[in-house]
Amino acid sequence: MKLNELSPGEGGTIIRIIAGDQKLKRRLRDMGIVKGETLVLEKVAPLGDPIEIRVKGYKLSLRKREAEQIEIEKLNKEAL
């Protein structure tokens, strides 16, 4: 599933970045969105976009359009 399909409090393991856009891909990687990493969706902004995730021990916000490009495997709450 994709990152934007998570609800607050849910998380998953990053599988891959779908984006064809090399620049976006690179920026996401630089920010710690790498394969095998666990992330948690922390919050959705009051107007529905962007979202906030926790990854690599820090908080990152990104728009849903970018979140759609991140494929993840959902994890059980206990595993987070």
Partner: peptide, 8 residues
């Protein structure tokens, strides 16, 4: 530009 921003 993409909106990729740390929330410090």
């Amino acid at each position: 530009e993409e909106f990729l921003m740390e929330l410090p």
